[in-house]
């Protein structure tokens, strides 16, 4: 009966994942492999960036950035997507059994430290070696274009591509990712947690469900579970470096603005 409970938990988290995230790996892979009805518009230089801004992103227009330099405009739009994903992750976290019964301060702490790790894990779903989907899958921005931006903006995405290529080699699907993301959120060693043992117990249950699910979903990948645990450590490093870069941009780039929600998350993070 314990195995049935874990299977039912995996199903529940998968449903919560599909319900709360606008984009998922199945949708993204269909677009990236040319199976979508309309192929994404490719952004590979300043001209195609302008065209995309005029035609693709009117719904997510950001006030006052039209006349700023391209690097700043891209940075601001990345923030919009991040804010939206934090909102989706918060709703997803609330679907984890017992999460909403945790001390409210602990809920805040788990999200503060977990959202960027979860976000970079899910970002891999919309990436391939040549670029990533933008504007809800309607655009594809090339990796080379991002590398061609001026410093320090050209340093933002490359580490995420490097992580994504290794992560995507594990060939996880959305059902695996739903449990992986839940396990990231329920990390009992985040600074300042009050009820550590309660969170550790919750994570243990999710991790058991993940191990069982991987066993049936990837019967031939015998080292997948330990590899995924290692990825959790890699994601922490990736977020630490990202947070340092954002602080640097905030200090040196007078024209950039950090969204209040992201400011809250980055403040006193590491």
């Amino acid at each position: 009966s314990q195995m049935a409970d874990l299977k039912s938990l995996a199903k529940h988290m998968f449903e919560a994942y599909l319900k709360n995230f606008n984009m998922n790996k199945t949708k993204a892979r269909a677009i990236l492999t040319g199976k979508a009805n309309i192929p994404p518009f490719v952004i590979h230089d300043m001209e195609t960036l302008r065209l995309a801004e005029e035609n693709l992103v009117s719904k997510q227009a950001v006030n006052g950035i039209q006349n700023k330099e391209a690097e700043v405009r891209i940075f601001q739009r990345c923030q919009c997507t991040s804010v939206e994903t934090v909102r989706e992750l918060t709703e997803f976290a609330k679907c984890i059994p017992e999460f909403i019964n945790l001390d409210l301060n602990d809920q805040v702490t788990l999200l503060k430290y977990g959202v960027y790790e979860a976000m970079f894990a899910m970002l891999a779903s919309i990436m391939n070696k040549d670029g990533l989907l933008v504007a809800y899958g309607n655009g594809f921005m090339t990796r080379e274009f991002l590398k061609s931006l001026r410093k320090p903006f050209n340093e933002i995405m490359e580490p995420k591509f490097e992580f994504a290529m290794k992560f995507n080699a594990l060939e996880l699907d959305d059902s695996d990712l739903s449990l992986f993301v839940a396990a990231i959120i329920l990390s009992g060693d985040r600074p300042g947690l009050v009820n550590v043992s309660q969170i550790e117990q919750m994570q243990e249950t999710i991790v058991q469900a993940l191990r069982l699910h991987l066993h049936s979903n990837h019967p031939d990948a015998i080292y997948l579970f330990p590899k995924l645990l290692q990825k959790m450590a890699d994601l922490r490093q990736l977020v630490t470096e990202h947070a340092q870069l954002v602080q640097k941009i905030k200090k040196t780039e007078a024209d950039t603005f950090l969204h209040p929600l992201l400011q809250e998350i980055y403040r006193d993070m590491y």
Binding site: Q60, V86, L261, E264, R267
Partner: peptide
């Protein structure tokens, strides 16, 4: 901690709460 994370706190309490982009 809640005081320092007002928007996160609001998102946790109320899913319909708007977050301006």
């Amino acid at each position: 901690l809640k005081e320092k994370h007002k928007i996160l706190h609001r998102l946790l309490q109320d899913s319909t709460s708007p977050v301006d982009l």
